[in-house]
Amino acid sequence: MKNFFKILLTALAVIVLASFVPGIDIENNYLTAVVVAVVISLLNMFVRPLLIFFTLPATLVTLGLFLFVINAIIILMAGKLVDGFHVSGFLSALIFSILLSLFRSYLFSFFEDEKEND
């Protein structure tokens, strides 16, 4: 049930950020945002570890800053996979991925606080 709420919160974050970040467009706001949230979650589960493994030397040389590039690549891939979610370029994907990470960590902190109180 917690994962379902996390996907809905991610969809909310996608809707909010798409209205602020230039170069990110969403058609059919709510349904497309939920699909984008699911696709980003799946890409983070399956593709991101492979990208991190294959780019480990670049990640180590840049002291982890290359992970921002990997996050932007995930957003670009989601833009290619989901109809109605358009990413105009790498810079838009980079800004969107950074803001999405910040937004998600803030929203998900409410779930972690709940676990500590139990």
Rank of each mutant, 00 (worst) to 15 (best):
E116W: 05
I95A: 11
H86K: 15
L65Y: 06
P49F: 04
M45Y: 14
V87H: 06
E114D: 07
S41M: 09
L63Q: 10
I74H: 03
P49Y: 01
E112H: 08
S88Y: 11
V38I: 15
G23W: 05
F85L: 04
T32K: 07
E27A: 11
F110P: 00
A72D: 05
F85N: 02
A37C: 06
V16F: 15
V34D: 08
A93Q: 08
T32F: 03
I74T: 06
L91M: 13
L100S: 03
P49I: 01
L94Y: 06
R48G: 03
I52V: 03
R104D: 11
A37L: 07
V47C: 04
A93G: 07
S105G: 04
G89S: 11
L102Q: 02
F111T: 02
F110G: 05
L107C: 10
I24H: 03
F68Y: 12
I74M: 10
V21G: 02
L31Q: 12
I74E: 02
I75C: 07
S101Q: 04
L8D: 04
I52N: 00
L31T: 12
A18C: 13
L107V: 13
F110R: 11
K6W: 13
N28I: 00
L102H: 03
D25E: 14
D113F: 12
G64Q: 05
L102A: 12
L63N: 10
F46R: 12
L102I: 14
E114Q: 09
I52Y: 00
T10V: 07
L81D: 00
S97T: 07
I15E: 04
A72Y: 00
L42T: 06
S41H: 11
V69R: 00
R48T: 12
N117K: 14
P57S: 09
L12G: 13
K80G: 13
F5R: 08
A72L: 05
L100C: 05
L94H: 01
F46E: 00
I74Q: 02
Y30R: 12
F54K: 12
N44Y: 06
L67Y: 02
T59L: 10
T59F: 01
